[in-house]
Design a protein around this nucleic acid. Structure first.
Lengths: 272, 272
DNA sequence: GCTTGACCCTCCCCTTGGGGGAGGCCTCAA
DNA sequence: TTGAGGCCTCCCCCAAGGGGAGGGTCAAGC
């Protein structure tokens, strides 16, 4: 018979844990000295302790372990418990993966934005690649886009492939009753809400300029792009895009003076 | 100003939670009526509550959230915290995956063993496919294989591809000083312990018979296989294999009378 | 036989993120 | 003014033990 200290060394369970298991009636000592209260354990207790440890490593709760020990003599008897545990772990894994994905997205966007922080921006003539996106066409004021982004975030579990943006379908700036579409680039198509429009956004040639500062001064940036387009004798196409390099974050609104928004106006040859 | 109940509805945080956050100084009400103790919250508190909720969804602890709120005004400021959290989640994911893998292995083996539970077994002439295995060559008594399996389990995190077995290098039964190799079929090779020998085990033709019952009666099964091999004028090759379809489980030792072990003796043409 | 040091006992408080409920005060509308 | 619902503080509860106080026990050495 082993004293609790010896048994603790034999099983690699702490004395505290053993006393706790005794109290929970999970692992009762083989004998308890009635006068001193000293606990003594035998070989069978070592085997039971081994099973309990194995089940703890599978992260069963002590209650579940007690139930398994009551009902099972063989691994095959425990199949239901094991399958249930397996399912719970699969759910936990899925949840953690969605958190990881959200973290990755915000880490990536903020890191990229950081490198552009102190840059000077000029008009660039770019070829934009096609991209799979999910968007919600909206009519009204631009501050409604927050809700749209929230809905997209929930629907796609933050499984984003890049910075979010807005498609602008109006050919002049509108404050009220604007026609626009907040969108997320996504990795895989997925059916969700009927309001959410998932499709491949076509690419093409666009003149782009990064706007620094709050959104209410963005018309200046549009103005510069449109004069350049006229100067190059090109025609602006709709919808134009605003890509949020750095805007209100997932957590904090941040400082609007530091917001960075790339305005992309797609262009084609003039009709003339 | 909102009362705590109104604020609770506005933020989807329970009243209990809000009082708890107040106590933890995480989200202090904008005003507290000194005579009644009633809490009142303003718009800024709603924004702060939104941030706290977002951080809770990323499963930050309240202490971490308090720290983030103290130090950050922008998502970019929180990058270190986010990266740390991301790392912790990656570790947790890896751990859960190893548990899931262990559960899968035991569920698969026990389920397969169940289907063979009531079967009658006869000698079968099989072609065994090659398999990637990790084994520990051992000299001594067969009950030492428990430790070997434990070591293999730890080294490969239960990432098993099928039932474990033992290779037998002796051409006669030895109780003491036997020469054998407990092995696990594995999915991917991996360098570990120098004692652990990882390689592709070659396949081939083998006569196989499932032995039912404890290991100490397994020599009868060997006898039946060897007489059949002699009758067919074949030569037995070494090492032979014992594949544990159902034996002492990951949790319970179970009932030895129900153990199932497939003995596989590889054969070639006789020299004569 | 006695001492000493290691070992063991019980009891209580602590951790996380709140939930449940008791007992009592406050507010607002009828 | 009264009643209902809202709000307050205080206390206990969950899981799985950890930390420590205060005190009894055991075995070995003298």
């Amino acid at each position: 018979m082993l004293s609790i200290g010896e048994f603790s060394r034999a099983t690699a369970l702490t004395v505290k844990t053993l006393r706790h298991y005794h109290e929970r009636k999970l692992l009762v000592p083989t004998a308890v000295d009635p006068s001193s209260g000293y606990r003594y354990y035998d070989e069978a207790a070592i085997e039971r302790a081994r099973v309990i440890k194995a089940l703890r490593e599978l992260e069963f709760s002590l209650d579940e372990i007690a139930e398994i020990l009551r009902e099972c003599d063989d691994d095959a008897d425990a199949l239901e418990f094991l399958a249930r545990r397996r399912k719970a772990i699969a759910e936990r894994l899925a949840h953690l993966r969605s958190i990881a994905s959200a973290l990755d997205t915000v880490i990536r966007t903020e890191t990229e934005a950081k490198t552009m922080h102190d840059q000077e921006f000029a008009i660039e003539d770019k070829t934009i690649a096609p991209a799979l996106v999910a968007g919600i066409r909206t009519r009204g004021r631009f501050d409604q886009s927050r809700d749209a982004f929230k809905r997209l975030g929930r629907a796609f579990g933050f499984g984003l492939a890049g910075p979010a943006g807005i498609l602008i379908y109006d050919d002049e700036y509108k404050d009220q009753d604007a026609d626009f579409e907040p969108y997320f680039p996504i990795k895989r198509a997925k059916k969700t809400d009927p309001d959410i429009h998932v499709r491949e956004l076509s690419g093409g040639r666009a003149l782009c300029l990064v706007h620094r500062g709050p959104y209410d001064t963005i018309s200046k940036t549009y103005g510069r792009l449109l004069s350049e387009i006229r100067a190059q004798k090109l025609a602006p196409l709709l919808p134009s895009r605003e890509v949020y390099i750095k805007g209100p974050g997932m957590l904090f609104a941040g400082n609007p003076a530091k917001y960075l928004t790339e305005v992309q106006i797609f262009v084609g040859p003039t009709d003339a």
